[in-house]
C-alpha cells in the first residue's frame, strides 16, 4: 500500500509537475522549496521511526551541510555535485559530537539535541573566518550545466532535489526492509530481547543518526546552491527543524511517503494561503497543526487515509496484507 502511494507520488512529481508547472518559475520554485523541507522531513522521520529518536536539532545538520558545501565550492573550487555529497559527510561528522547523547532516554535526548543545535548556531555565527559571520556568504555557485542540461534554472534545481529525495526514499525503504530495519523496529518495545540475540543496539542507533545527518546535510547543501546565499541565522534557523517535524507528524512519520506529502501540503498551504492572509506570524498555523495532530492522530494523516481505503478491500486482501 505504502509503496504504491510512494510510486504514484513520485510519478506525479517526475512527470506531472514539470509538465504543468515547468514554465512557471514561481510555482516550480515553491515546489522545489517544499521538497527541501520534504528531504529534511524524511531524514527526521527515518531517525524517529527506525532509530526511535525525536530530534529538535536537525537545523544543525542542515546548516553544517550548507556551509560545508558552500565553502568547498567557493574557496577550494570543488564541483558543486561533489560538494553536495561532501556536505552530507560534513553533517554526518558533526553528528559525531552528538553521539554521547545517544545514552540518554527519549525526552532527554530530544533536549540535548536541541542544545547541540543552539551550540552549532552560535559557533557558526562566531566562526566569522569560515562562515562570513553574521554578514553571510554571497554568490555561492549555482548548480552547474551537466550533460547538456542547465541545473541552475528553477526547473533544473527542482529535478535535482527531486532526485535527492527519491534516493533518500529508496535508501529508507531498503534500510527498513533489511535485517537492520527489523532489529530497529524490534528495539522500540523490546530492546533487551534484541540485544540478547546479539544486536548491537547502540551501534544501530549511531548508524541511523549518521544516515539521517548525512541526508539532512546533503539537502542543506543543495539549498545553499539553489538560493546562492547563506547566513548563520538562516542556515541554522529553527525553521529547518520546525517545518520538517510538522510535515512528518502531519503526513505520518512512520510511513515512507507521509513526510513528503506532509511537506508538500504544509509548505504550499503556508506559502500560498496563510502567508497572504497573515503576513506576520503565519507559522502560527504550523503550531496549531502540530498540536492538533499530536492530540487527534499522532500517527499522522496518511495512515488514517490508507486505513479508510484498505478497510473496504480488507476481506479479499487479507492474505496479501500479511506478506506486505
Amino acid at each position: 500500500m505504502n509503496i504504491k502511494i510512494s510510486a504514484l507520488m513520485l510519478g506525479v512529481m517526475y512527470l506531472g509537475v514539470p509538465f504543468f508547472l515547468g514554465d512557471n518559475d514561481y510555482l516550480i520554485g515553491l515546489v522545489a522549496s517544499a521538497l527541501i523541507i520534504a528531504g529534511v522531513a524524511v531524514a527526521w522521520a527515518l531517525l524517529g521511526n527506525l532509530g526511535g529518536m525525536v530530534s529538535f536539532g536537525h537545523a544543525a545538520f542542515f546548516g553544517v551541510g550548507a556551509y560545508t558545501s558552500a565553502v568547498l565550492t567557493m574557496d577550494y573550487g570543488v564541483p558543486v555535485f561533489v560538494a553536495l555529497v561532501v556536505g552530507g559527510v560534513g553533517a554526518s561528522l558533526s553528528s559525531i559530537f552528538m553521539m554521547p547523547a545517544l545514552r540518554l532516554r527519549g525526552p532527554y535526548f530530544a533536549l540535548a539535541i536541541l542544545a547541540y543545535a543552539e551550540i552549532f548556531k552560535i559557533l557558526a555565527t562566531e566562526a566569522t573566518g569560515l562562515t562570513g559571520g553574521a554578514g553571510g556568504l554571497l554568490s555561492i555557485p549555482s548548480l552547474p550545466v551537466f550533460a547538456g542540461v542547465d541545473f541552475g534554472t528553477k526547473l533544473g534545481g527542482y529535478i535535482v532535489i527531486l532526485n535527492i529525495v527519491t534516493l533518500m526514499l529508496i535508501t529508507y525503504y531498503f534500510i527498513r526492509r533489511s535485517s537492520y530495519g527489523l532489529a530497529l523496529k524490534a528495539m522500540h518495545d523490546s530492546e533487551l530481547a534484541t540485544r540478547i540475540v546479539g544486536v548491537p543496539a547502540t551501534y544501530l542507533k549511531v548508524v541511523m543518526l549518521l544516515v539521517s545527518a548525512f541526508m539532512t546535510g546533503a539537502v542543506g547543501a543543495f539549498n545553499a546552491h539553489y538560493i546562492n546565499f547563506l547566513e548563520p541565522d538562516y542556515a541554522f534557523s529553527g525553521t529547518w527543524t520546525v517545518f520538517p517535524i510538522v510535515a512528518a507528524i502531519f503526513g505520518g512519520y512512520r510511513t515512507l511517503s507521509g513526510p513528503v506529502l506532509g511537506a508538500l501540503f504544509i509548505y504550499l498551504v503556508d506559502q500560498l494561503v496563510f502567508k497572504n492572509l497573515i503576513p506576520q506570524g503565519h507559522q502560527l498555523i504550523l503550531g496549531v497543526m502540530l498540536a492538533g495532530m499530536i492530540i487527534l492522530s499522532p500517527s499522522g494523516l496518511l495512515p488514517v487515509i490508507t486505513n479508510l481505503f484498505t478497510r473496504k478491500k480488507a476481506d479479499n486482501k487479507r492474505g496479501e496484507a500479511q506478506h506486505a
Partner: peptide, 18 residues
C-alpha cells in the same frame, strides 16, 4: 522476551543476522 512487532520467522532472522 519476544522481539515485538516482528513475526516468529523475523525474530529468527534478526537472531541469525546479528
Amino acid at each position: 522476551q519476544p522481539m515485538h512487532e516482528l513475526s516468529v520467522r523475523e525474530n529468527l532472522i534478526v537472531a541469525q543476522r546479528f
